[in-house]
Amino acid sequence: MNIFRLAGDMTHLASVLVLLLKIHTIKSCAGVSLKTQELYALVFATRYLDIVTDFISVYNTVMKLIFLGSSFSIVWYIRHHRVVRRSYDKDQDTFRHYLLMIPCMLLALFVHEKFTFKEVMWTFSLYLEAVAILPQLVLLQRTRNIDNLTGQYVFLLGAYRGLYIFNWIYRYFTEPHFVHWITWIAGVVQTLLYADFFYYYFESWKNNVRLQLPA
């Protein structure tokens, strides 16, 4: 564990807590893409298959349970909670996210480290996480008015993988043979997808104006 990875995990944890806070406290999911939440639930379900077979540390297991529990409960809230689901904008959240799942699964079947079920599913989760934010970014462009909590959620979610890139750089220089192109490329693509959001997020923060993405 290094400071970059700890900061990344804490930033990731903060992003899910911000979203849970928003949904649970103000009972609203306005501006939140259910499609992205469903993709993230799938990302964690396919990435943490080893949670019952390989114990790494208490921290690792607890964090996996938090990410699995929070992502599935957020999906439940938006789909089934009698108050929250009324604020879900299904007419705007129209990204066909299975068009993201299929290419990621195909790519994982061809580009992976080992052709085993767990390894292919783990690789699928890496590719899927890289593009999982797309429905959310599309929804933000459409809804225009981005409330603070949703903006903070997207920012923290994007920042965590950026911190992981620093973690991989650190590990590359401190651990022999630490080379993982698949993970690195997926992580860089994921972070780059947030580039324009980060730009407008910092601009709105610097000029102290409401965050608005260009149409």
């Binding site: 564990m1 080893d50 990410f67 080992k114 783990w122 630490f178």
Partner: peptide
């Protein structure tokens, strides 16, 4: 280097 040393990451 197998992905094993990535499995301690989240």
């Amino acid at each position: 280097s197998s992905n094993q040393d990535l499995k301690d990451e989240l």
